[in-house]
Design a protein around this nucleic acid. Sequence first.
DNA 1: GTTCCAAAATGACTTCGGTCATTTTTGACC
DNA 2: GGTCAAAAATGACCGAAGTCATTTTGGAAC
Lengths: 223, 223
Amino acid sequence: MSQPQPQTIPSRRERAKASKRRRIAEAAAELFRSRGFDAVSTDEIAARADVAKGTVFRYAPSKAQLLLLVYESRLEQAVERALQGLDPDGAIDEELAAVFLQFLRLYDDDPDLGRRFVREVLLLPPAAEGPGYDLTARFIARLADTFAAWRSAGRLADDVDPRLAAQSTFSLYYGTLVGWLNGQLSAAERDDALRRSIALHCRGMLAVAPAKRARTAARGKRP
Amino acid sequence: MSQPQPQTIPSRRERAKASKRRRIAEAAAELFRSRGFDAVSTDEIAARADVAKGTVFRYAPSKAQLLLLVYESRLEQAVERALQGLDPDGAIDEELAAVFLQFLRLYDDDPDLGRRFVREVLLLPPAAEGPGYDLTARFIARLADTFAAWRSAGRLADDVDPRLAAQSTFSLYYGTLVGWLNGQLSAAERDDALRRSIALHCRGMLAVAPAKRARTAARGKRP
DNA sequence: GTTCCAAAATGACTTCGGTCATTTTTGACC
DNA sequence: GGTCAAAAATGACCGAAGTCATTTTGGAAC
């Protein structure tokens, strides 16, 4: 991706590390999925990955962060797939909905684990370091580029801030995701809510067809 | 509020419970604020509240949920104040921004603790029971009523779904809150981002002044 | 005042996440 | 092969969250 992909084979040490990371991630994924996050101890994960307990904590700073290992690759793939799949000429609201619907589907197979992940990791690691930690931030930046392109093509109003638009759209997605994970929305309602809220949001951003934009009604003063 | 306010004095038992709840909440609040969530143990909280450790867990199912006790009353007050303060004739985007800016200010005094609260509690208690737990859901329902009133007054487009509009606006607030708590936004940027994203969102919902609404451009087909 | 029971409180105990001093492995250099 | 320092792995240990069998309390009924 951004790595220049060195052709040299990584050292034995690097290979061993990669292997351990993978084993730990897989052990955690399997155990979490079969028995649930809380019911699995880090000792079990270590045993299954065939490493000592302390080693687990060299690859993830806490049990919660193991969820990042578990979701990392799927998330990265989903981001690539979604952005790649964008049709530059498609209706903006539909394209955006298509992107985020893909993200929602990531959690379909195990919503409970998804909830833990969203809660513990995606939101609020104060200064988490490493690869794919600010994955969200990087995605939003790329989405902002897309908005900028749309604007350049004259499809969005000139006064739309691409960065803000990207952030806002993500917020709408996130709110929908949470509503579903919390059990307030069924999967179908969730998809519908996402589509409609994005469509609504886009309405204010689209370039008006030929001439004057409808002007805001009722401008009051705040006391 | 919704309680019919029984005039009879609560039984001794009820009074004792209320007192304990208050003592626990206060002890937790003071300790968390002075030393931070992680550095405080539940034993200390119990000692300060002058109850046994087990008692703490009768009033909050986990340490994290103590944060709900800590924030509960401030949150309820803020909701009332914010909704009360709404000017029905004010500009819709500005009124909404004013409401949510008040919520943001709740966390100004201790953003770290706020982050813990938002992370642990506001989001994702699967089936939390009791008073003020679905506080968010109830607030959104009331906000939806406000949107419905605006629409009835002809100030919003007829096809706006009040419930969805309320949910979406809340999502924008939430996203902004998280961005700030995560340190990506300064307090000033946060306020600005909130105002602008709400304004943008409202643009698509406002009733157009006199006649035809600008029609969506470029309708593509999804493959 | 006595009886009785359900609700509440208690604190010793268990379990598990996370640490860290010690040991082992790796690979560079000779 | 031998030496050495840095990186990685290890697992005994620690502290604190949360549990639960037992005790205490409140108050209703008599």
